[in-house]
């Protein structure tokens, strides 16, 4: 096992190698000086590609939702991935097992593309005494229990304590078994989590199979934790090419 010094050397070399372009790039000094003097407004720069992608996705989202009868919330959760989806290939995952005593999960969509299998779940608390946040970023919490004061809903920030009221806050962290990642979208309809399995079993997916992932929950008010597992049943699926 490498020592911390060896790991330091590895990481420094890797990051420096991957960011060498910074050394030759023009300095931001001029812009910073102008903004400090008030000669230039502080406006966030957005790369052209992102603007074009965002515009295209927004147009596609509205058009698709309007013509297909799929709730805009569920569709927007796919837009976060910037996907160019084949709507006919979307299937509905069924929650076969959920060992959590705090969370209710509803499968809304599943989609298999070149970057992996993604499933969208609606996440609710199991009772009226709790509210659920996705990980620390949604609830703005860290391990020490320090929390921020706001939560993002529909892109707007709202006071966290006002939002949760008297209910206790559950922080849920999702972990696909194997390689993967997850993200979320919170709207007025609730919390939607996207769990992506980067290397699913292709043969099994083609026949229809179960997939599983883990959740670690923490009740922020009581400090209680739970580790639970979720199993979803999927019908036979076909991998879609040309993703993004």
């Amino acid at each position: 096992m490498k020592t911390d010094q060896e790991i330091m050397q590895n990481i420094r070399t890797a990051i420096d190698d991957c960011t060498k372009g910074i050394d030759d790039a023009p300095s931001l000094q001029y812009q910073i000086a102008r903004k400090a003097k008030g000669e230039e407004p502080v406006v966030k720069k957005i790369s052209t590609t992102i603007v074009l992608v965002a515009a295209l996705l927004a147009i596609t989202a509205v058009a698709f939702a309007a013509t297909n009868g799929i709730g805009i919330t569920a569709f927007l959760s796919r837009i976060i991935g910037g996907w160019n989806v084949n709507e006919n290939a979307i299937v509905a995952p069924v929650v076969k097992e959920n060992t959590s005593k705090w969370l209710n999960l509803t499968g809304t969509e599943a989609y298999w593309a070149e970057d992996g299998l993604s499933v969208v779940l609606k996440v609710d608390s199991a009772d009226d005494e709790h509210v659920v946040c996705y990980s620390n970023e949604d609830g703005l919490l860290d391990e020490t229990g320090e929390r921020g004061e706001q939560i993002a809903i529909n892109g707007e920030m709202a006071p966290l304590d006002q939002w949760r009221g008297e209910k206790e806050l559950i922080i849920a962290e999702f972990s696909p078994l194997g390689e993967g990642w997850n993200w979320y979208k919170r709207t007025d309809d609730g919390l939607f989590v996207i769990v992506t399995f980067s290397t699913p079993d292709a043969e099994a997916l083609q026949k229809g199979t179960d997939v599983a992932f883990q959740i670690q929950d923490t009740n922020i008010q009581t400090g209680e934790t739970e580790e639970c597992s979720v199993t979803l049943a999927l019908p036979a699926m076909t991998m879609q090419e040309g993703h993004k």
Partner: peptide, 30 residues
């Protein structure tokens, strides 16, 4: 905005030097 556009991690979003591209190991670790 960042939540909206934050999807895949890509080495192409980093300021790599095209005349001296990073090694595969360094890309994997980064």
């Amino acid at each position: 905005w960042y939540r909206y556009i934050d999807f895949h991690v890509s080495i192409n979003q980093l300021p790599i030097l095209s005349s001296a591209p990073p090694s595969d190991d360094h890309i994997a670790l980064t």
